[in-house]
Design a protein around this nucleic acid. Structure first.
Length: 475
RNA sequence: GGUGCGGUAGCCAAGUGGUAAGGCCGGGCUCUGCAAAAGCCCCAUUCGUCGGUUCGAUUCCGACCCGCACCUCCA
C-alpha cells in the first residue's frame, strides 16, 4: 500500500510511487529566501515537507530530497547593502541561521541544498534554450522574458484561465506591479533574466544578453533539472507559490527541455494564521523560533503545534495552541515511559527503526500509521495514537511491539520525545526566595514556606515542588 | 469577478450512508503539609442554514449564508 497524497494539478488523491527505474523518489521543495530569519509560517511548510519525506522513508522509499536556497533577489540584495556586507556574506549568515532552526525543529537535512548563485550557468543555459525555441524574447534593456502565449497549456496547475491573465486589470495585485514592468509584450510574461540596474551594486553576472541576474522562477527550473532531471516525482511549496511561481516553473521547464510532465505530483501546504490574523510585519506577528524560545517554548512544542492541523487547511497558530501542544507532548511522553517500563526497556532503547528493517512492527499503532499514510493526516494519526495509548499494554510482548510501533510513528512525524526543555533564566531574587522556601519546607516550617510561595508568586513565578527539589516557571 | 479551501463541543481537530476519534480547557474523585503534578471518571441526542435522495445523512445532491486563501515575484 503506497502513501496517498492530494495532488494540486489533478485535484485527486493519488499514490506516491517512484517513477525512476532505480526506485529513488525525487522531491524538490522550494526553500527559503535567505534575507532574514525564517518565521513559523515558513516552517509550517518545511515541517510538512519533512514529515512527508519521513512518511515516505518509513514506507520504505529511498527519497532524494532537494531544497533550494534563494540567495539572490531584490530582498537579499537590499538586505546585504543595508548590512554593509557582500551578498555572499549576508546570505551565508542567514543560511546558517536557517540550518540551526531546521536542526532544532528536527528537520532532516536535504540531500542537496542548491543555491541560485551557484547555478547561474545552468539558468543561463535554460534561458538560451527557451530563446532558441521561441519561448522567450530579449527586451530592449537586455532583460529576457518568457512568452506565456507560446505555452498552450500555461495555467494547468493553478487552473487559471489564460485569456484572463493578460487582460485582467481589476485584480488586487495589478496596481503594485511596477517593479517588473520593463517592456514586456504581455502583462502575463515574466522575467527570466533581469538586466543589470545601478541598484544591483556588484551583484550581476555575464550572459549572452549582457550583465544582469536571473529572475526568480528560473532558478528552481534549472536546479531541479540539474539535480533531479527533466521529470521527477514531487514538487512542494506553500500555496502561495502555486501561482505564479510553480506555474512558471512548469512552463519554463517543459518548454526548455521539450519534455512534458515536469513534476508528477504537486504538494502545496496551506498557510499559517497567527491568533486569527494573517501574518504580517505590521501586525508584529511574524514569530521566529527565537521569539518563541524567548517565551519558553521548545522547538518540539513548536513542531507539534505546527503539525496540529491538516496540511490542506489553514492553521491558526496561537499561544493556546502551544500550551495544548506542550500538554499533549508531555502526556505522550508519560505514556511512552509507561510503555517502555512495561516492555522492560530504557529510554535509550526508544530509537527510530532502521530504514532497512524488514520486520515492520506497528503494535497498536497500525491505525495511526494508516492515517498518516492517507494524505498525511497528522491530526488523525495523533488521535489514533492517543486512543491506542489509553489502555495499558496487555503484556510485555505487546508492550515491546508497541514501543517499536510508537517509535516508528514518532520518527515518521519527526517528534523527538524526552527532549530537555531549555531552562528559563530565573531572576536571582526569585531563585533566592525559592531556596529559602525549600529550606523552610524541609524544616516543616509551613507558615514560612507559604509566605515565601506568595512572595514568589508576587514576583510573577510559580514554584513547583518535586520529591527531591523544585522547578520554577513564570506564572 | 475568477479559482480553490473550509464552517463538527468553551478552544484545537479527525471522521463515517447506520447513528460523533483524539488533544486542550473545565468539573468530580484519589493522592498530597499547601500549591502543582499524576491516576481514574465525567464533559456534542449533535456536525453553518434550508430543501432533496434514502429504511436511515453530519456524511450524497441542490440552493443559500458565513469565513479564509490565491489571482505576477509572499512558505
Amino acid at each position: 500500500m503506497p502513501v496517498l497524497l492530494h495532488d494540486t494539478m489533478t485535484r485527486e488523491t493519488l499514490p506516491l510511487l517512484p517513477r525512476r527505474a532505480d526506485g529513488t523518489y525525487g522531491m524538490y521543495c522550494c526553500g527559503p529566501t535567505v534575507y532574514g530569519p525564517a518565521h513559523i509560517g515558513n516552517f509550517r511548510t518545511f515541517v510538512l515537507q519533512d514529515t512527508l519525506r519521513r512518511v515516505l522513508e518509513t514506507e520504505g522509499l529511498r527519497v532524494r530530497h532537494i531544497r533550494n536556497i534563494t540567495d539572490v533577489d531584490d530582498k537579499t540584495i537590499r538586505g546585504a547593502q543595508a548590512a554593509g556586507k557582500t551578498l555572499a556574506e549576508f546570505t551565508r549568515g542567514w543560511t546558517e541561521k536557517f540550518h540551526r532552526d531546521c536542526a532544532a525543529l528536527n528537520l532532516l537535512v536535504p540531500h542537496v541544498e542548491p543555491g541560485a548563485v551557484a547555478h547561474i550557468p545552468q539558468q543561463v543555459r535554460m534561458i538560451e534554450a527557451l530563446v532558441a525555441r521561441g519561448h522567450a524574447y530579449v527586451a530592449k534593456d537586455g532583460s529576457v522574458y518568457f512568452k506565456v502565449c507560446s505555452c498552450p497549456d500555461y495555467g494547468k496547475l493553478s487552473h487559471l484561465d489564460r485569456s484572463r491573465l493578460a487582460t485582467q486589470s481589476t485584480n488586487s495585485a495589478g496596481e503594485a506591479n511596477d517593479a517588473d514592468e520593463y517592456d514586456r509584450e504581455s502583462a502575463a510574461d515574466f522575467a527570466l533574466w533581469k538586466a543589470r540596474k545601478p541598484e544591483d551594486g556588484a551583484n550581476f553576472w555575464p550572459s549572452p544578453w549582457g550583465e544582469g541576474r536571473p529572475g526568480w522562477h528560473i532558478e528552481c527550473s534549472a536546479m531541479s533539472l540539474e539535480h533531479l532531471g527533466a521529470t521527477f516525482d514531487l514538487h512542494a511549496g506553500g500555496v502561495d507559490l502555486c501561482f505564479p511561481h510553480h506555474e512558471n516553473e512548469i512552463a519554463q521547464s517543459e518548454c526548455a527541455t521539450g519534455v512534458k510532465g515536469f513534476a508528477a505530483h504537486w504538494f502545496h501546504s496551506a498557510h499559517l494564521m497567527v491568533e486569527g490574523a494573517k501574518m504580517s510585519k505590521s501586525l508584529g506577528n511574524l514569530f521566529t523560533l527565537d521569539d518563541l524560545a524567548a517565551k519558553g517554548w521548545s522547538p518540539m512544542e513548536v513542531r507539534w503545534a505546527l503539525l496540529a492541523g491538516h496540511y490542506r487547511s489553514p492553521l491558526n497558530f496561537t499561544f493556546k495552541g502551544l500550551e495544548d501542544a506542550r500538554s499533549a507532548l508531555a502526556k505522550l511522553e508519560r505514556a511512552a515511559d509507561a510503555l517502555l517500563a512495561a516492555a522492560g526497556f530504557s529510554r535509550a532503547e526508544f530509537a527510530p527503526p532502521s530504514v532497512n528493517e524488514t520486520q515492520v512492527t506497528w503494535g497498536r499503532f497500525a491505525a495511526a500509521w494508516e492515517r498518516l499514510r492517507d494524505d498525511l493526516n497528522v491530526p488523525g494519526a495523533l488521535g489514533e495514537a492517543f486512543k491506542a495509548l489509553a489502555a495499558p499494554a496487555a503484556d510485555a510482548a505487546q508492550a515491546r511491539q508497541d514501543v517499536a510501533g510508537l517509535a516508528r510513528l514518532l520518527h515518521a512525524l519527526g517528534i523527538l520525545p524526552f527532549q530537555e526543555r531549555p531552562a528559563l533564566a530565573v531572576p536571582e531574587a526569585v531563585a533566592a526566595l525559592a531556596a529559602r522556601r525549600w529550606e523552610a519546607k524541609q524544616a516543616r516550617d509551613f507558615a514560612a514556606a507559604d509566605r515565601l510561595r506568595a512572595e514568589i508568586a508576587a514576583a510573577g513565578w510559580t514554584m513547583l515542588d518535586r520529591k527531591d527539589g523544585y522547578d520554577l516557571r513564570p506564572s
